[in-house]
Amino acid sequence: MVKKPKPDLRVEIGSCILENPVMVASGTFGYAEEFKGFMDLRKLGAIVTKTITVKPRSGNLPPRTCETPSGMLNSVGLENPGIGSFIKEKIPFLEDLSIPIIVSIASEDKPDEFLVLAELLDRIKAVSAIELNISCPNIKKDRLISQDASETFNLVKAVRGITGKCLITKLSPNVTSVPEIALAAQEAGSEAVALVNTFIGMSIDIHKRASRINSLVGGLSGPAIRPLAVRMVWEVYNKIKVPIIGMGGIMDIESAIEFVLAGATAVSTGTANFIDPAISLGIVSGLRKHMEDNNIADLREIRGKLKICAD
């Protein structure tokens, strides 16, 4: 009998090499410290931090979260200590982990803030990549950057001009065509796209006749959005060349592989981190076992290789 090759879990996201394809989504993993008691953080493929802005942000009024059928709504509103405190207080811990650290950034008022942030992060060795959060539904704006292809192109292009770090663009599902925005990001020099951010949703308490979260609308995440997210990953996979980081309700090994079959190079756990803080490492070992059991040496063999269901 031929000995099965040991599966190689490594994947490349632009210039970043991940030991395995399991990451954690921005905003669901704090700055990683919150999870150190539950798991060996060094075994993660990569960590994406909570989004950082130039100035500290106190975030939205509570209540900020509520559970919905198979999901949750949140309207945290990018609460964060600001880039200065982040670099001073959070980077040292992240640096010690010696795994790819991806810093998520966003602007509050002007897109130029992305440039300020990218320039500061460009100087930090521990930062492997920058994720452009142009898709947060919880900041007061008429329209998100990621809801317009030319704005997306201009922003990514501008950031590309000032940093050599790997650039990832986080896309919104709240658009008519995600591939159109993904293409704009790719053309402007984004080395990968992350999709999807949360879906804008509402939940109402009929007894109080009031919204369950203070901001009225919030971002929906969890298994409830998974089929929508898988569909969007598939659509984007068929249109672009750069790697996709797929996410949306990944709770277990099966749902992680679903995203790979739809075309994702890496996957991120999100809401699941709140319920089962070490779930991402469970997915890493489950993935290795699935590859061994199915004689898969490299995930490339199954990436985007979904078949049409036939009777």
């Binding site: 704090g30 509570p62 900020r64 945290v76 609460e79």
Partner: peptide
């Protein structure tokens, strides 16, 4: 456990 910032 302090990660989601939902209960502030």
């Amino acid at each position: 456990f302090g990660a989601c910032l939902g209960c502030v």
